[in-house]
């Protein structure tokens, strides 16, 4: 369980998150929605320990999150990842990074680590790309390889920051089908997304955020009024065809 209590965060005096209290039960497929600048990425970065807590607390499985993160693998798929497209790494090398924390300093990956990484690539339907250089992968392929890295360590949690950002429209649905499958296998998933249609189809729990928490409840209990309040303006739900 991820428990966030009284978290407030500001950048240069501007409050981005205010007094956030939130509990995420195990096995949920939760989505964080909100307009740009609502603090969605900040909340995720705080959970993942990329940003230091200024006030409040975050616990994962009853342990302060920074201690939990030091001892346990966490599945994470960033919105974008800064790297040189000509970096001499293959898709398999990238996935193996997800297992690096299991090894002592100076130790090499074993055959079983490579096998595990290949299985993760298979799960994300990218096993055929294992020996491909990163520079040769499309945005969608890269996103699936990043997902393989996020799940390879068998972390019970998977946190995603706008996973649909670099995937083409037909790819989004199959990507979320894959997430749904992972969720049905017991993984707790938290994702930021702007695609309300996709979220209502796949996510079981909705977190409406716009500096403060507007809702955190089962998806079917969220109505247009709450979403409109979260976004602070009129929201038009557009039916997309995938």
């Amino acid at each position: 369980m991820i428990k966030i209590s009284g978290v407030t965060h500001s950048f240069d005096g501007n409050i981005v998150l205010e007094d956030i209290d939130l509990e995420l039960a195990e096995g949920e497929f939760a989505a964080i929605i909100g307009p740009n600048g609502a603090g969605k990425s900040t909340l995720i970065k705080l959970i993942l320990g990329f940003l230091p807590l200024q006030s409040g607390s975050i616990e994962i499985d009853g342990v302060p999150h920074h201690l939990w993160l030091r001892q346990n693998p966490m599945g994470y798929l960033p919105q974008t990842e800064e790297f040189d497209r000509r970096f001499p790494a293959t898709a398999l090398d990238l996935v193996l990074l997800g297992l690096a924390g299991e090894l002592r300093i100076g130790r090499r990956f074993s055959k079983s680590h490579r096998q595990k990484a290949l299985e993760a690539l298979e799960t994300t339907k990218t096993a055929h790309l294992a020996s491909q250089q990163l520079g040769g992968l499309s945005g969608g392929e890269l996103q699936r390889v990043f997902l393989a890295r996020a799940i390879v360590s068998d972390s019970k949690y998977l946190i995603l920051d706008e996973p649909e950002a670099s995937v083409d429209l037909p790819g989004v649905q199959s990507f979320f089908e894959l997430l749904k499958e992972l969720n049905s296998q017991g993984k707790t998933i938290v994702t930021i997304s702007h695609d309300l249609n996709i979220l209502t189809s796949y996510c079981s729990f909705l977190i409406c955020l716009n500096r403060t928490l507007h809702c955190h409840t089962q998806t079917e209990l969220v109505n247009a009024e709450i979403i409109q309040k979260t976004f602070g303006e009129t929201v038009r739900l557009i039916e997309k065809e995938y």
Binding site: F50, Y76, E82, F83, F87, L97, A100, I105, G106
Partner: peptide, 22 residues
């Protein structure tokens, strides 16, 4: 000795640190 660490440090230091590499 530190090939793995140097490899991922060169790839992206922040992500390498997130995945618990020293």
């Amino acid at each position: 000795f530190f090939f793995k660490e140097l490899f991922y440090l060169s790839y992206n230091a922040d992500m390498a640190e997130f995945f618990r590499l020293p």
